[in-house]
Design a binder for these strands. Structure first.
Length: 455
RNA sequence: GUGGAUGUAGCUCAGUCGGUUAGAGUAGUGGUUUGUGGUACCAUUGGUCGGGGGUUCGAAUCCCCUCUUCCACCCCA
């Protein structure tokens, strides 16, 4: 076999069936976004590397796809770094662009760049692919689509509540049972402060994030290994073991961290959000999960994660509040909050649960069988009439064997096949075959459109 | 990035103590049915066994390298 063509690791092609299903997801997501007053933007696939680096933590930087400079890029590289095989230094000498890693950072850049034209608070949505040089697995791709909604330029917690509403609405429309997990970075900071390890907050949150995965003992081991003191770990235990309803957890945690101003603020924020939820307009269950940490460094307040109830896959939606993302680009004190729906994982979940509607795949509704040149010219005006009435239809391009043409129609899921040969033409009629029932009838050619519309 | 598994016709997979022209189902093509699909029957196309190198008289089968996909870790949508 000649070498088969292929595509890069972790990327995918999408067939027509997959595209109609993907569009079904995009369309429902989009319709809800619009319903809540969000406006769409797009940004380029590539950003300046300086825009991207340093925003996602050390790990994130490693996962950035970098684009080689054009021209004789090696000529401009530093000879010493080059001969020392110093990849880290050389990288930035031969590459100044990278593929976007998410939609939030490019959005922050966008906001800063067009700050004078934007009408704040700005509600934008953005549906585009992002790229990560991760090692692929099920539900993890190197190119995947995110559907982001963010509200920037407002620190009102009503925005957090609205995002929860959007999550609720979208997943109920798609038919996926989900649980929304919520936590707050201030609360996590308060915990770190309380146990006397304020500057280790990242290590601590990353470790406790694994609680339900690796268990309490392993988490403690990891904390110790990261240099968190025994005393601090002791103090942390009751927090890790918190249980009960959301309110109960909040009350308990409040007592533990009352010495920390930041922590108290976090509790208050969560209370406010749960207060909104008491109105009962959201039917998805929302859980306070103190072990929810999320890696992205820029979150400062609420953090969200959405898990599918019936399928084991990573989170299908995630997000949070960032108080100073635009600060890095020179516009400080603009708070925003947003979430990102992972279209590809949502697809995988829906496929496993068989949630895609069946009638989504119809493309052509009517196919004219081609019997030859004379018959073609009889059919063409009829075909055009159907199309003018908005009925997707086509004529087979050559007078191949009937069997072949019927087969084509059958495979494509065409509902009606129109037969117009010599005898039909002489009578001014057309034979219409219903491919589902197998029945066929003759009718006047000028009644065809009407007949199809009724069917 | 670390560790483990996988790769045979378009698709799903048989085929190991290494031995002559590598099999099945399905799809494709042609026919039974000169204007009728989805069912049936018959015939037929298609593979240098992921790629490269090595061991051997001889390799899909053993060894090394590389790539793909999958699983765990890391991290995440």
């Amino acid at each position: 076999m000649a070498q088969k063509p292929s595509i890069p690791k972790g990327t995918r092609d999408f067939s027509p069936i997959e595209m109609t299903r993907r569009n079904y997801i995009f369309d429902t997501v989009k319709s809800v976004f619009k319903l809540y007053g969000f406006e769409q933007i797009e940004t380029p696939a590539m950003e300046n590397l300086s825009t991207l680096t340093g925003k996602y933590g050390e790990e994130g930087d490693k996962l950035l796809f970098k684009i080689l400079n054009s021209g004789d890029f090696l000529a401009k590289a530093n000879e010493l770094d080059l001969s020392a095989r110093n990849s880290q230094k050389t990288t930035f000498q031969i590459s100044e662009k990278g593929l976007r890693y998410d939609l939030t950072v490019p959005f922050a850049r966008f906001v800063v760049q067009y700050q004078s034209e934007i009408n704040f608070p700005f509600r934008r949505y953005q549906i585009q692919p992002v790229w990560r040089a991760d090692r692929p697995q099920k539900g993890r791709y190197r190119e995947f689509y995110q559907c982001d909604v963010d509200i920037i330029g407002s620190d009102s917690l009503l925005n957090e509540y609205e995002l929860i509403q959007i999550v609720d609405k979208i997943f109920s429309k798609l038919g996926i049972g989900v649980t929304i997990k919520i936590n707050n970075r201030k609360l996590l900071a308060g915990i770190a402060e309380t146990i006397g390890e304020a500057d280790r907050i990242i290590d601590i949150t990353v470790a406790i994030d694994k609680l339900d995965k690796i268990g309490l003992e392993k988490v403690n081991e990891e904390l110790l290994q990261k240099g968190v003191s025994m005393v601090a770990i002791e103090k942390l235990q009751p927090i890790l073991l918190l249980s009960g309803s959301n309110d109960e957890k909040l009350n308990k945690i409040e007592k533990v961290i009352q010495a920390s101003e930041t922590g108290k603020k976090g509790v208050e924020e969560i209370r406010t959000i749960f207060g909104y939820l008491k109105s009962g307009l959201v039917s998805t269950s929302v859980e306070l999960d103190l072990t929810l940490a999320r890696g992205l460094n820029y979150y400062t307040g609420a953090i969200f994660e959405v898990k599918a109830n019936d399928v084991q896959i990573g989170s299908i939606t995630g997000g949070g509040r960032y108080d100073d993302l635009t600060g890095i680009f020179g516009l400080p004190d603009i708070s925003g909050v947003g979430i990102s729906f992972g279209a590809d994982r949502i697809y995988d979940v829906m496929e496993q649960l068989n949630l895609f509607p069946n009638d989504q795949t119809i493309s052509t509704k009517v196919l004219f069988v081609n019997f030859g040149k004379a018959e073609e010219s009889y059919c063409l005006p009829l075909l055009e009439k159907l199309r003018e009435s908005g009925i997707p239809s086509e004529i087979f391009p050559s007078d191949d064997k009937m069997k072949k043409q019927m087969n084509y129609a059958n495979k494509k899921g065409v509902k009606y096949v129109v037969l117009a040969g010599e005898s039909e033409i002489s009578e001014g009629v057309v034979t219409v075959k219903n491919m589902v029932s197998g029945d066929q009838i003759k009718l006047k050619a000028n009644l065809l459109t009407e007949y199809i519309q009724k069917g």
